[in-house]
């Protein structure tokens, strides 16, 4: 490809970058001064502890019994009260019980030094996990329903259309309640499974519409050419139509998956500690709602931003083919 003469857009004076920086700066500054005017004491220093905890790992008793600490204080032995069980611990930095104490199962005995993920990071992990698993189910579901939308068979077409209409016509929050309370009860699903099911079914409907648009965007002659070579409808779809359709749908699909990550915050209504729920819990223990919600927003941005980045790379690679 020959590169055409430089487009005017490439020669935009640097001043517009300056304008951009100025506007961002102005918004930042007004936020800062607004926050100074309200009666709120900022405690950003409380936050890191909830992202990565330096409290260390807790050592807990696995049965009821008595504590015995060695003379050098480096080992701790538990003797079971109603049995012959003996447990020895070492490598801890801080002992939280005394010589001869009676402790019960799950009591904290000591702490090992080290870092472990705080509640916000654990919540982020759950958000990532539930989004990723939902994605794995939503993609094939959406592909099948999307194929149903363009099928000639009226049963397949109408079933697919009904599914899409119902899902797109009701709020996700209501669907989550139905999945959690009704379907979850009938099928004995755990909260996590119900959450994955709700998000997959919800996202699947949108993926189906994206897939349908992609298939319809492929020129009609492509299907005719494939069929005229003797390929069956499924073969034509698989080798000719879908490869072209999916390439076109990559950008809208990315948008849908970013939506999925954000929508997953709604599962916090059903006893799942995702990033949003973790945020709420941290607020109640720190009394710093502003800092917490800003941090939660940044963590979501980290997830969605890196997803966009990966897909943009992928798109570039596909464009070079």
């Amino acid at each position: 490809m020959s590169s055409p003469a430089k487009k005017p857009a490439d020669r935009v004076p640097w001043i517009w970058h300056g304008v951009y920086a100025l506007v961002i700066l102005a918004i930042g500054a007004s936020l800062y001064f607004a926050s100074k005017r309200i009666d709120y004491s900022w405690h950003w220093e409380r936050l890191p502890e909830y992202v990565i905890s330096t409290e260390g790992e807790e050592i807990r008793a696995s049965f009821d019994g008595f504590v015995e600490i060695s003379e050098d204080g480096k080992t701790l032995t538990m003797t079971e009260m109603k049995g012959a069980g003996i447990e020895t611990f070492s490598g801890f930095s801080q002992v939280l019980v005394g010589q001869g104490d009676l402790v019960f199962q799950n009591d904290v005995l000591a702490r090992k030094p080290g870092m472990r993920p705080g509640p916000l990071l654990i919540g982020l992990w759950l958000t990532l996990k539930i989004s990723a698993i939902s994605l794995v189910f939503a993609l094939p579901l959406g592909l099948i329903v999307g194929l149903g939308r363009v099928a000639r068979n009226p049963a397949a077409r109408n079933l697919a259309a009904t599914y899409v209409e119902i899902i797109r016509g009701t709020p996700l929050l209501v669907q989550i309640f139905i999945f959690y309370f009704f379907i979850g009860t009938v099928l004995q699903l755990s909260a996590f499974t119900a959450g994955v099911a709700a998000l997959s079914v919800f996202t699947g409907a949108y993926v189906a519409e994206i897939v349908r648009a992609g298939i319809e965007g492929v020129a009609r002659g492509q299907m005719e050419a494939a069929r005229s070579l003797g390929m069956s409808y499924p073969q034509s779809m698989r080798y000719v139509i879908l490869p072209q359709a999916l390439r076109k749908t990559l950008p809208p699909l990315t948008g849908q998956f970013i939506n999925l990550i954000k929508d997953s915050s709604l599962v916090s209504v059903m006893a799942l500690t995702d990033l949003t729920k973790a945020g709420r819990e941290v607020v109640s223990s720190t009394f710093s709602p502003f800092e917490v919600w800003f941090s939660v927003a940044i963590l979501y941005l980290l997830l969605t931003g890196s997803l966009s980045l990966v897909v943009r790379r992928l798109e570039k690679r596909l464009a070079h083919d």
Binding site: G221, Q222, E224, A225, A226, S228, L229, G230, Q244
Partner: peptide, 15 residues
């Protein structure tokens, strides 16, 4: 049947 009948289109329709 179509494997027996080759077809060439106005718009080429290459993949």
């Amino acid at each position: 049947l179509r494997t027996q009948v080759g077809m060439v289109f106005q718009q080429f329709n290459l993949f």
